[in-house]
Design a binder for these strands. Structure first.
Length: 100
DNA sequence: ATTATGACCGAAG
DNA sequence: GCTTCGGCCATAA
């Protein structure tokens, strides 16, 4: 049970290509609402390209948010997956996944 | 135990 | 649309 970060990583592994989720949603799904910031910390520590799609996690307002390797890299990865981004924001915000 | 940090959020101006 | 500010929560020191 410690592994807050493990839970975070496991969860976001289920986010499919071309879709995104938010830090807030992840926190909520882990039953730690409000822990959005902590989620960011977890992702930051576990930078693991490709295997764990930490680039598919964005801010709740649709803006891209941060990334260990820079927002540029994050946006590039997303666009390669078909996510449309304009001015730091996800255009098709309807493609967000929610873990009820 | 206390403090600081950060890939955040929401409300307010 | 923007910026600022207070509040959140898990880590690290």
């Amino acid at each position: 049970m410690d592994n807050f970060k493990k839970k975070v990583l496991d969860l976001i592994k289920s986010v499919p290509r071309g879709k995104v989720t938010t830090y807030n949603e992840v926190a909520r799904a882990l039953e730690s609402p409000g822990a959005a910031r902590a989620v960011g910390q977890a992702l930051n520590k576990n930078e693991r390209p490709v295997k764990i799609p930490c680039h598919r996690v964005v801010k709740s307002d649709g803006r891209v948010g941060g990334y260990k390797l820079g927002r540029l890299a994050k946006m590039k990865l997303l666009q390669d997956e078909g996510v449309i981004i304009e001015r730091e924001r996800v255009a098709n915000f309807n493609e967000v996944i929610y873990f009820f």
